[in-house]
């Protein structure tokens, strides 16, 4: 790691700050201050609120200790949402992330004609707001006049037609796949860029040993791309825990709460059911899950991927 300025440092923050006023002010103090106002305070407040009962309107909040957390432990909706989040994460890792990698590899290896066109097409939905994406798929997957069912029937796959948003067994997967559709471009360009950085010699060496594409991917590309994977997996994890927009536009948790995820449940409980304390407790749970999964990922699986 770069540490060219460290020759003056005595290892303490005060010592550092004296010698590097500019960096301390604009690189540490200002961002931390802004962070404290707009991100730190909300987090602290959320933790505080999770010990209260509050309808969002009353001037007083009622202190209830750990009651919100106790309720959470046997709230069926919480577990449905938690499991749904896990499913969502798995779908996101399998579909957009793996597919994104595959497309990037195939293009980088010049295995297809017109690779940049494909790249552009797949990346485009990344720029669409999820409201737009949701509206689009509401039209396309509609059971009465939706184009997708018409298409399936016309190519003889009518047996595959389902109520994409109405069938409680598949609605969540429909949502996760739509979100994957909109997200695939992201891992794709990250991997594409990462592949461009793998030293030529590494691939040359593998080629001389007679490696095919499968071995190239497994023993050269993937290990070399660990830092990229680390970023993508982290972003995917955070995104899936925050999943909200699509559910708000497409199902609002219906049918009967089976498409609730934690992010949407927070919103439902706070703003719809006027239980801001409980909503805050759910938020704290999301933060704890996100934080510990991120720490686990960085500490074990992806160790050293982002040394600071």
């Amino acid at each position: 790691m770069a540490s060219s300025a460290s020759r003056f440092d005595d290892g303490t923050f005060v010592g550092f700050a004296r010698r590097h006023v500019f960096v301390t002010v604009f690189g540490v103090a200002v961002p931390l201050l802004v962070f404290a106002c707009f991100i730190g305070y909300p987090i602290v407040y959320t933790i505080y609120l999770s010990f209260f009962e509050w309808n969002g309107m009353a001037p007083q909040k009622k202190f209830v200790g750990f009651a919100n957390y106790a309720y959470l432990l046997h709230d069926k909706y919480f577990y449905i949402a938690l499991v749904n989040n896990a499913k969502w994460l798995v779908v996101s890792l399998v579909f957009p992330v793996s597919l994104g990698f595959l497309i990037a590899y195939v293009m980088k290896a010049r295995l297809v004609f017109a690779p940049s066109l494909l790249r552009t097409i797949v990346f485009f939905p990344v720029t669409m707001s999820l409201i737009a994406v949701g509206l689009m798929f509401l039209l396309i997957l509609n059971p009465v006049f939706g184009a997708f069912d018409t298409l399936l029937r016309s190519v003889g796959l009518g047996f595959l037609v389902h109520e994409w948003f109405g069938d409680y067994r598949i609605a969540l997967y429909t949502l996760a796949v739509i979100s994957g559709w909109a997200f695939t471009g992201m891992p794709m360009i990250f991997y594409f860029a990462g592949l461009g950085d793998v030293p030529k010699e590494t691939f040359d060496a593998a080629r001389i040993e007679g490696a095919g594409h499968w071995r190239m991917i497994r023993s050269v590309a993937l290990p070399q791309l660990r830092p990229v994977t680390a970023i993508i997996v982290m972003l995917t994890l955070f995104e899936s825990l925050r999943a909200f927009d699509l559910i708000a536009v497409l199902t609002k948790g219906a049918p009967f709460g089976m498409t609730n995820v934690l992010g949407y449940l927070v919103y439902m409980e706070s703003f719809w059911n006027s239980r801001f304390g409980y909503g805050a407790a759910l938020s704290v749970v999301i933060l704890v899950i996100a934080g510990s999964l991120a720490a686990l990922l960085l500490g074990k699986v992806l160790k050293g991927a982002f040394d600071v």
Binding site: Y41, T46, R242, L262, G263, A294
Partner: peptide, 10 residues
Amino acid sequence: MLPQQTVLIP
């Protein structure tokens, strides 16, 4: 990591 809907009130 923060879900936006969490921080709306504060």
